[in-house]
């Protein structure tokens, strides 16, 4: 924790988070029927957005790894999976906090909710499979699993959508169902969360690289 407090980057991002918060609290209007609770939406959507981007990155990096076998693409996939899981956790936790006052239930088996939960489980499994990437086999097998997971996501989504859906659709092909001010607040929070994603990604990739070097040195010492 001390190390985090010493980093200028960390403080920069704390400031950005506060900026997003103030835009959400002061700038964005209060929704007429739902009231203040609706503002959970901004974090909820932003973290869901980052989660989806992160998992798409895992898919792309996994393909790249199987193709080029570069350590960088493996680290990218692993770091992205981890951060994506953190943000998906945020989505899964903020969702019920909005749903309870509005739907009067913490959880329902709606397509989006179910898909998000399955996504979380799949990437938790991916991280468990990858481990620290201690061997070439683990990296390769995790890459294969990352590809399978991504292909499975639409299947999960459409099967649950067929079943039932009550989740509000804010962004559809017809446009965004938000007032202009709300839209600005949403884009600000999505922007801040995206920057946060890239920052964490860089940090995690660096530590994974260090891990690799430590492992390499240990092997060298034992040889």
């Amino acid at each position: 924790m001390k190390d985090a407090l010493k980093s200028p980057f960390f403080w920069g991002f704390t400031l950005l988070m506060l900026l997003a918060l103030s835009v959400i609290v002061y700038y964005a209007p209060v929704e007429r029927t739902m009231g203040l609770v609706q503002k959970v939406f901004y974090f909820h959507v932003a973290s869901a957005w980052v989660g989806l981007v992160a998992h798409t990155v895992v898919f792309a990096a996994s393909i790249l790894y199987l193709w080029k076998r570069s350590g960088g693409s493996d680290r990218l996939a692993r770091a992205s999976a981890e951060i994506g899981t953190v943000f998906i956790s945020c989505t899964l936790l903020t969702g019920p906090l909005w749903a309870y006052p509005i739907w009067n239930t913490w959880w329902t088996w709606d397509p989006r909710l179910t898909t998000t939960l399955v996504l979380w489980f799949m990437y938790a499994a991916y991280i468990a499979l990858h481990g620290g990437g201690a061997s070439e086999a683990r990296k390769r097998l995790a890459a294969v699993y990352g590809i399978i997971c991504f292909i499975n996501v639409p299947l999960v989504f459409f099967s649950t959508r067929w079943w039932r859906s009550i989740h509000p659709v804010v962004i559809s092909s017809e446009g965004i169902a938000l007032t202009p001010k709300m839209r600005v607040a949403m884009f600000v929070s999505v922007g801040v969360f995206s920057v946060l994603y890239f920052y964490l990604l860089r940090l995690r990739m660096k530590s994974l690289e260090l891990q690799e070097r430590v492992r390499h040195l240990k092997a060298q010492l034992l040889a």
């Binding site: 924790m1 985090a4 953190v86 956790s89 946060l196 964490l200 940090l203 660096k206 530590s207």
Partner: peptide
């Protein structure tokens, strides 16, 4: 969550 994850990263680093 984000704070815990960040400090976890820094710690590991």
């Amino acid at each position: 969550l984000v704070f815990l994850y960040t400090s976890f990263l820094y710690n590991g680093q």
